[in-house]
Design a protein around this nucleic acid. Structure first.
Lengths: 188, 188
DNA sequence: CGCGCGATTGAGTAATTTCAAATCTAGTGG
DNA sequence: CCACTAGATTTGAAATTACTCAATCGCGCG
């Protein structure tokens, strides 16, 4: 359902039906099953994605094979390996589906065209990226300031739904704690 | 010198003389001495700043009075408390000058006008914000993946100049390590 | 029924913090 | 030029936090 996208965009700008149709024409729909990869480390990243339905994770796997989760992406979130996408270099992250997923896919070229052709959409993406920046700054601050347990509590308060949809090991990989440590304070 | 700003902007878009004059007209110059505050926690944040000359830090001070440095801002960097700036809420950060400073100041209203009146500048800020997003994501990853010593080394390799301009205690507050720990591995 | 993934628990270890004290340094006034 | 002081840095030792390794437990699904 593309209404979801329209509603999402119209939280920031407003569009006529014709304008939205034009916007939508730059996207394609992709459906993927749980465990499928949307982006694979080492491969080029042609697209960014808007999540209509389902849940994905974006993760970096280090030299020791340890996984760090950069981002969870649920409904109404945008996700890609933006460093790779923007610089046209091979992906550093794996992005894969934790559930069956429905995505709207926007290629680099189409985003460029869309933004060039629509000041409004350029504005939308500027604001949206700014919100992402603010969110990341909060996360940095939380990593600097809070211990593992209080990061756990904060995440739980902010996204309780996530804990129903994701195994705790992944929550740990997102928070920067070992599974064992997280397990020790999950029962308050 | 506003040439610095023009050169900075033209790394992403190109401007005619007239266009740049218009851009510049949205900014005002501010000169501040070492130790002066540009933003103070609790106060409203009307502006974002482009650093022409000098060095600032943006920092969060927690309930225990411990300072965490969100960002250093040297020449050609943008700085503000963006959460406060964007949401028009009181600042959470202190931003103050570590050296005598020359800034170009852009008010919220003027940024809005500037972006609304110039698709190019809207584009510039979108890209710039995107780069900031990517940088922050790298920092999150580094906090998740690397131990204190390797974060120290990375910062040193990436910004050697910073270490000449800033006391080590602040480097520690940026990296998320105690001064003592940082001191212990600063001699390789 | 048994396999396999996820979660928990225990014990020992490593990294980093905190507290305290000593040392060094740059800038100031005499 | 020198002594003095405040801030910055280093060093030491104890305490804390979280990690790793290992074993166990629980449960859903084929």
């Amino acid at each position: 359902m593309s209404k979801v996208l329209r509603q999402h965009i119209e939280e920031i700008i407003s569009l006529t039906d014709a304008e939205f149709d034009d916007v939508l024409s730059h996207f394609t729909t992709r459906r993927l099953k749980k465990h499928q990869f949307v982006v694979q480390a080492g491969s080029p990243v042609e697209h960014e994605y808007f999540v209509i339905k389902g849940l994905l994770k974006s993760a970096y796997i280090n030299a020791q094979g340890k996984e760090h989760i950069v981002q969870f992406a649920m409904e109404n979130w945008w996700v890609s390996d933006y460093q790779a996408y923007h610089n046209k270099i091979p992906a550093n992250f794996d992005i894969d589906c934790l559930e069956d997923v429905e995505l709207l896919s926007l290629s680099y070229e189409n985003k460029k065209k869309l933004c060039a052709g629509s000041h409004k959409m350029e504005h939308f993406f500027r604001i949206k990226t700014g919100l992402g920046y603010i969110g990341l700054q909060q996360r940095v601050l939380s990593l600097l300031n809070d211990d593992a347990q209080s990061r756990y509590k904060q995440l739980f308060t902010q996204y309780p739904a996530l804990f129903q949809r994701v195994p705790k090991g992944m929550i740990a990989a997102y928070l920067g704690v070992s599974r064992e440590t997280l397990s020790r304070f999950s029962n308050i």
